[in-house]
């Protein structure tokens, strides 16, 4: 897996600017780029969240992300789509997931971006555990 792969699961952080630039440089047909950046909140309900630990079903998670990208490319009138998900322990304010949709016109990119993050939460075998001052708990919902 290299940094230019459009679908990646990685521990290390990513750069929103670099990933947008990669897409922007890949085609002069692109007229709209819509990114979604998911970051770690410092609270959950009433509790303070110090960090979030991610777990994946290795192999199946990457396959599911690749299938998700293919489905989005099929479903929407977009030119390209990047999906990067971190699996590691992140602190509050850190990057978790990045989705970038590129299209000729903005509407398709907005729709593809929203659909992709919504569907990712339902179909990709990744889980998060919140670490709070009072202990840790697995997140069982995907709001």
């Amino acid at each position: 897996m290299t940094r230019t792969d459009r679908v990646r699961i990685q521990a290390e952080d990513f750069s929103l600017a670099d990933e947008v630039q990669l897409l922007q440089d890949s085609s002069k047909r692109i007229g709209a780029i819509v990114p979604f950046l998911g970051i770690a909140r410092d609270f959950s309900g009433d509790a303070e969240v110090k960090s979030i630990e991610f777990e994946e079903y290795k192999g199946m998670a990457l396959k599911a992300l690749k299938a998700l990208r293919e489905a989005a490319l099929e479903k929407f009138d977009i030119i390209d789509l990047t999906i990067v998900h971190r699996v590691t322990t992140v602190g509050a304010g850190d990057n978790i997931v990045l989705i970038i949709a590129a299209s000729e016109h903005r509407k398709a990119a907005f729709e593809a971006c929203e659909w992709t993050i919504d569907t990712l939460k339902e179909t990709v075998p990744i889980w998060k555990k919140e670490i709070t001052p009072d202990g840790e708990s697995w997140v069982t919902e995907h709001p």
């Binding site: 990744i126 889980w127 069982t140």
Partner: peptide, 10 residues
């Protein structure tokens, strides 16, 4: 066989 709770990534 993987036995998994509902996913919560993202």
């Amino acid at each position: 066989v993987a036995v998994m709770p509902p996913f919560s990534g993202g």
